[in-house]
Design a protein around this nucleic acid. Structure first.
Length: 608
DNA sequence: AGGTCCGAATCAATTCTCGC
DNA sequence: GCGAGAATTGATTCGGACCT
């Protein structure tokens, strides 16, 4: 707002000194030009700049200046001759009018530049829901994928995984599983990602082949030159040959140098049964065998093993290559949106051939591949014959070598897979019962039922119960170590017992070197397992034998695993061990007499 | 059978709301 | 300010359909 300013630095028209000299109340115009108006306008513009800079959402309007009469002011204050200020009034009115015009212009300008008013303004807040796997790099991947589609490039899950791996490798590789992080980019993640960003599947199309614009000219020229060559050189018709290349058979048909006879197994694809082909194989000393028609998928070992593995290997080669390309380009300073990878055949073909060689080399080293294929074939036939075993993973007992359905062993399919993959020791329920020290002791007790051994039984029971270490505590030798090891492990030791306490207690009977409590890797909490190092082998054996040590059954364990307690189950219907309803095909059996298809309620026999 | 795909269900990780 | 539970949203799993 513009008003008469009494500030002593003001350049406006108030001359305080003179008026104050006379009465201290009167005013008169000191400066009669527009110069001071220009100074005020500079200040207004500075204010507009400041507001625009720091208060972008503020609405600014400059209020115009009211006309003031010097005559009236001085008259009100009791001036003797207020009308002597008439000329000053005319001058000041002109100045104020000029200033107000300028203010009007400024206000009009502010109105035009004003940003449109936003309704329902949202304040920024943290995103809700589960955080994205790639965190802040997710946006980069979104940018890249959208850019790919914008340029009509193919977007699929493999490419997405590859590009996300590449970007992650460049930005923060330590978060990837292969570099010790926690992130593994799987197909399921890729699916979820594409769904999240609103991508749907479309049928891929190829650009239509278009003839060159000058095709007619080219055709005339080409045919003309061919006929010219034939004519000029007198080439007979039968010597005009057309040469082209086509797909090559995977099995080479000549130049083989095998000395001994070999066998090749083919499926009944027509090309494999051409007489000339068979003859060539025979000449090379290779016997042939055809998988019966309609059985290829059951009996072709390659289909059941190698082929899929090769494909997997090639696929992983592609992902690694693509990720590397993205990483390299980002390192070279390109932005995510500018990364371009040449997937055209001339570029990709030679690289692809290398991948195939790599894959074959890798699979070749896996000696079990073909054998597994054959096993799968047998399994398939079995599963057709016995549909109840379909899709149920099996576990082989390390001791008695019997096979158990994972469900019967009370493991989920996932757990079973881990047991198989990690070669974790599996003992069936029967073996666990017969092998555990507890049962061993119990059997020992039962065998001494006679009256004369009563005292001995009490002794065994007393020794067995060890209050100091907790009733459930057991001692075991690590199964992956050799027999001569001086170490043993105490299981189920309450976590409140300190190492020094155990050391002191054990040293009373055995020569112990060191007692060490294990801690969990993730939570750093105390584990109930303690490692004991004895001073000599005699002490070790003595300690182990005292707690019912049993011989290790496998010596190929790669890592220490605590004993898995097998859960023995019995199906209520057939009363057999190790079966559940879904799998059992046995008939109902009476739990009392053991007879099949006999109703318990009608059976009067004593329970067996 | 094995691979692929899809959608529903479920799990997981986070913020928001509300009562104390 | 704290904690329980609701709400929200991303990730993962699972089963069925389909194809070769």
């Amino acid at each position: 707002m513009c008003e008469f300013n009494k500030d002593r630095n003001s350049k406006w028209f108030v001359d305080e000194k003179k008026t104050l000299e006379k009465s201290g109340r009167y005013i008169r115009l000191k400066n009669n030009s527009y110069k001071t108006v220009k100074d005020i306008l500079v200040e207004y513009n500075r204010a507009i700049d400041m507001v625009g800079k720091f208060a972008t959402r503020a609405k600014l309007k400059i209020i115009d200046c009211t006309i003031l009469s010097v005559q009236q002011w001085n008259k009100d204050k009791g001036h003797k001759d207020p009308y002597s200020f008439k000329t000053e009034d005319i001058s000041i009115t002109k100045q104020i009018t000029y200033l107000n015009k300028k203010i009007w212009c400024l206000n009009h300008k502010l109105e035009l530049n004003k940003t449109p008013e936003k309704k329902n303004v949202e304040l920024s807040r943290s995103p809700k829901g589960r955080p994205k796997l790639l965190g802040k790099y997710d946006e980069k991947v979104v940018d890249y994928v959208k850019k790919l589609r914008a340029t009509d490039a193919i977007v699929n899950k493999q490419i997405l995984i590859a590009c996300a791996t590449g970007i992650s490798e460049h930005k923060c590789r330590s978060m990837l599983l292969e570099y010790g992080g926690h992130i593994a980019l799987h197909r399921s993640w890729a699916e979820s990602f594409l769904r999240r960003i609103g991508f749907v599947k479309r049928k891929g199309t190829k650009a239509a082949r278009t003839l060159p614009i000058n095709f007619d000219e080219l055709k005339v020229e080409f045919l003309g030159s061919v006929s010219k060559i034939i004519r000029e050189n007198n080439i007979p018709e039968e010597l005009v040959m057309n040469v082209d290349r086509t797909n090559m058979s995977i099995i080479p048909c000549g130049n083989w140098t095998m000395e001994e006879e070999a066998l090749a197994i083919f499926d009944v694809y027509a090309a494999h049964r051409v007489e000339s082909f068979i003859n060539k194989l025979q000449k090379a000393g290779i016997l042939t065998k055809y998988v019966p028609g309609g059985c290829t998928e059951e009996l072709q070992p390659l289909d059941l093993s190698g082929n899929s593995q090769i494909k997997e290997e090639v696929k992983s080669c592609f992902i690694a290559w693509y990720a590397e390309q993205v990483d390299t380009q980002l390192k070279a300073g390109k932005t995510v949106k500018n990364v371009e990878i040449n997937l055209k055949l001339p570029n990709i073909k030679p690289i692809h051939v290398n991948w195939i060689f790599q894959a074959i080399q890798k699979v070749k080293d896996q000696k079990g591949v073909i054998r597994n294929g054959a096993v799968t074939a047998i399994k398939k036939i079995l599963q057709k014959k016995y549909p109840e075993v379909k899709k149920v993973p099996w576990l082989s007992c390390d001791i008695c070598k019997s096979w158990w359905h994972s469900a019967c062993a009370r493991y989920t399919n996932k757990e079973s897979q881990i047991i198989v993959d990690d070669k974790i020791k599996f003992q069936c329920a029967f073996c666990v019962i017969s092998q555990t020290p507890v049962i061993g002791k119990a059997t020992e007790i039962l065998n001494k039922k006679s009256e004369e051994n009563k005292k001995e039984i009490e002794n065994i029971l007393d020794n067995w119960s060890n209050d100091n270490l907790g009733g459930k505590s057991t001692i075991q030798r690590p199964r992956f170590k050799q027999q001569q090891s001086l170490t043993a492990y105490l299981h189920n030791i309450p976590t409140n017992l300190e190492e020094s306490f155990i050391y002191k207690g054990l040293n009373e009977d055995y020569r112990v070197n060191k007692v060490q409590r294990f801690k969990y890797m993730d939570s750093v909490k105390f584990s109930p397992v303690m490692k004991i190092t004895f001073q000599d082998l005699d002490s070790t054996i003595k300690a182990l034998k005292s707690q019912g040590f049993y011989e290790p059954v496998t010596d190929n364990m790669e890592k220490f695993e605590p004993d898995r307690k097998a859960k023995v189950i019995r199906w209520f219907n057939c009363n057999r061990l190790g079966h559940i309803t879904r799998i059992s095909s046995y008939k109902h059996t009476c739990s009392n007499c053991g007879n099949e298809e006999y109703n318990n309620s009608l059976c009067s026999a004593a329970p067996k």
